Amino acid sequence: MASHIGKLPVAIPAGVEVTIDGQNFSTKGPKGSDSYVIPEGITGVVENNEVVLTPADDLRPTRAKHGLSRSIIAGMVKGVHEGYAKTLQIVGTGYRAVMKGKGIEFFLGYSHTITVNPPEGIEFEVPNPTTVVVKGIDKQVVGQVAANIRKLRAPEPYKGKGIKYADEHILRKAGKAGK
């Protein structure tokens, strides 16, 4: 029996080039290129403009990696075609971000500023002083960089001050009860 997710083919959009050489999978598109090593026991082929993965045997570890490999490959194809982006909102009086070269300088209420430089393959955008957009082709790296930025000043539950994801809702707590 194969994985339910792993059985689904991955459609290759126009403008994206996919090559499978043994266990090496690589993809190239308008946003860049990426590669992945398919685990042993899983074979991949390109048929009818789709990537199809099949497990070689019915061993449980191979089945688990079957669905994971399909998800990673689908993410890579989407990443080189469209790219990924995470938007962060900065909430708080005096809290802001400014582009400094390719990096970002944050003013977050500390006695010093914090400068974050992008790792390879990541771009930052600051459309306004309270919004930061992290962009790239690798879903995992974009998410990790956004999480690291959020960790600089995580939102607190009383006033909601800090750095939060644009689609995140902060559960608020009641403050001290007045007399």
Results as ranks from 00 to 15, higher is better:
43 T>W: 10
68 L>S: 13
29 G>E: 10
23 Q>H: 12
64 A>C: 09
83 G>I: 01
70 R>M: 06
49 N>E: 09
68 L>D: 14
39 P>A: 12
40 E>N: 12
22 G>C: 10
51 V>S: 06
77 V>A: 04
79 G>H: 02
35 S>D: 11
53 L>I: 08
53 L>A: 04
54 T>F: 04
55 P>L: 07
45 V>K: 15
52 V>H: 13
101 G>R: 05
105 E>D: 08
40 E>V: 07
38 I>F: 10
47 E>C: 03
54 T>A: 15
64 A>E: 13
83 G>N: 02
103 G>T: 09
68 L>I: 14
41 G>R: 05
51 V>Q: 07
66 H>A: 00
52 V>E: 08
32 G>M: 02
87 T>E: 14
105 E>Y: 00
61 P>H: 08
61 P>A: 09
98 V>I: 13
29 G>R: 04
87 T>L: 04
84 Y>M: 01
50 E>T: 13
40 E>Y: 12
77 V>C: 06
60 R>A: 15
24 N>H: 14
21 D>A: 15
85 A>K: 13
103 G>K: 07
56 A>C: 05
87 T>W: 03
99 M>L: 14
102 K>A: 14
68 L>K: 14
103 G>D: 06
31 K>D: 02
35 S>K: 11
24 N>I: 11
82 E>L: 01
44 G>I: 05
37 V>A: 10
27 T>K: 00
